[in-house]
Design a protein around this nucleic acid. Structure first.
Lengths: 148, 148
DNA sequence: GTCGTTGCAAAGCGTTTGCAACTAT
DNA sequence: ATAGTTGCAAACGCTTTGCAACGAC
């Protein structure tokens, strides 16, 4: 229930030395990609990053971008997210609800309408942002799987 | 621990008559696909549904499944979700945070750590489900865009 | 010079589309 | 008989992979 993770500032220098410590090399392409990654706020969508990098550096092959992203994941600079990969369609009749899916056992559950409403309020209280909860999935661990 | 879902029952019969009302036809393939859609709880991932249908009915072409899903969307049986399409990677150093993205203007915002923590608590209170908020994006409308 | 890295091209996967054959009505 | 539907094959966009050339060290 804690979320006090210290956020070590990750600068190019640190990443590059981690890279070298593992016997990897710094190439102009990697420099550009790392730069783009650090500049990105929030999430990183591979295709978009690939395009962004290519805009700055004429000819970086997409495969290089993909390979570098996965290298950065190995180095611990990036993490892969399965969270938002998912559903494409949902039943039109279903009311706003928040779907909970256990990442380990795959069990699905929903917040009650009341709980969903409170969640909505909580978010709305932040600068009046109105979330679209018409369909919403949150990944995590169910009680049973946490115990294991 | 179940929540009260008041899911207006959408049965095959209703869907089929809507279908016909629009001048569409009922084929064995569509029957199978509709059956699978109704059986699905929660979200529907096209590829998975396609495979599920093919398991039951030897030779349904994937394109038929895709076309039927989009037809069902036209009929209002399904809705398309853009919500969870997105990010693949996120910075490993970033703290748990909840990302808010305005669907209209694209502005990004984050809940404060405190707000994120309360959101986590709220979800945790439901059957002890521990959400993974390490990276999380919620779509909706920012205050400015609601006004427009 | 070594060996990690790159670009290229080909292949993979999910999805879309054109078209001729089929079939529910 | 008349459209709406289907399967097939081709095409598409994103991603991965094998391989030879390249270049950081």
């Amino acid at each position: 229930m804690q979320c006090s993770k210290i956020d070590p500032v990750q600068d190019t220098a640190t990443i590059v030395s981690d890279l070298r410590a593992r016997g990897h090399r710094l190439t102009p392409q990697r420099e550009a990609i790392i730069g783009a990654v650090l500049k990105a706020k929030g999430h990183i969508v591979p295709v978009e990053l690939a395009r962004a990098v290519q805009r700055r550096m004429s000819a970086v092959n997409p495969s290089t971008v993909y390979r570098t992203l996965s290298l950065l994941e190995d180095l611990g600079v990036l993490k892969h997210s399965h969270l938002e990969h998912g559903p494409e369609y949902y039943r039109a009749t279903s009311q706003d609800h928040v779907h909970l899916r256990c990442a380990r056992c795959g069990t699905d559950d929903d917040l009650s309408l009341d709980e969903a409403e409170r969640l909505k309020q909580l978010i709305y209280a932040h600068a009046g942002f109105l979330p679209d909860l018409s369909h919403f999935a949150i990944s995590g661990l169910c009680a049973a799987c946490q115990a294991r």
